[in-house]
Design a protein around this nucleic acid. Structure first.
Lengths: 141, 141
DNA sequence: AGATTATATCTTATATTACGATATATATGA
DNA sequence: TCATATATATCGTAATATAAGATATAATCT
């Protein structure tokens, strides 16, 4: 495999390891994965969750029941099909997901605004934006 | 929170969501966290694992036992203290960790070498390298 | 030599995860 | 309109993951 790709992944995993939040809330592994799908996809229902995490619909429904009990998600109904549940993240759900998948904001603040010049910060944002755009092209294809 | 930081995190989670490997091997959640610690830290033993994932030493030892059985890790002994186990990732462990924490190499290859110019690729690598270096400063402080 | 440290094993218990069977409500097609 | 399909919910059952106290052995330190 090309060394640039290996390097990029090494940088990626290092950055996450070093900048991740510590002392995270207790939430199940499948719970995080589900919150992520709800966050990143459109019109997510039980069936979509089941497909995304490769479980049966009953299992997906049970997982969602527990996330509902914890107030991490809430249900709306599709206007196009009343059977269809559309899942949404609550404020609490967004926060929990953030802490399990994002980079620590205090650390980022320190790096971007106290350690980097304006030019460097621009470089970072530009590069991430570029990669994200290209990633979207691959993901949607 | 500053909008650049929110943006960066949005980009970060989007990139990971879109470029992560799909159809991952079955490995426990704590298993992945342990492989990660072994990968990123130096001289990792049972005590360090216990501290890193916030469990008792007995629990840590049990987790390691299972990772040993699956050939994801192997043990060496510290030359400084014979009691001390130093854990290392096997090739298989490296591969499993890679698939659970890195960006899909085929997707990266497509993006970096088929969709991007040389200049763009350089920008990405430069930005990631810069962020990684600054992240190391924060992590080690 | 006795105390401390590093790890391993065993026992016990709870949480998480999964799915088949069954049920209800809604939507679709003949 | 009725039969069938679809979307989700609940229940019962079972396996796996996770955790830690008690106990043990070996190595290191005082």
């Amino acid at each position: 495999m090309n060394k640039d790709i290996v390097l990029l992944n090494h940088l990626w995993t290092d950055i996450y390891y070093q900048l991740r939040y510590k002392h995270q809330e207790k939430i199940t592994h499948q719970g995080i994965r589900i919150l992520q799908v709800i966050d990143k996809e459109d019109e997510v229902g039980i069936k979509e969750i089941a497909n995304a995490i490769h479980v049966s619909h009953n299992t997906a429904s049970e997982h969602i029941k527990r996330l509902l009990e914890k107030d991490y998600v809430f249900k709306t109904r599709s206007s196009k099909d009343e059977r269809k549940v559309i899942l949404r993240l609550s404020e609490l759900g967004i926060d929990v997901l953030h802490r399990h998948s994002s980079l620590d904001e205090e650390k980022l603040k320190h790096i971007l605004f106290e350690q980097m010049s304006d030019e460097e910060r621009k470089l970072i944002l530009e590069a991430f934006t570029l990669l994200k755009e290209r990633a979207s092209d691959v993901h949607n294809s």
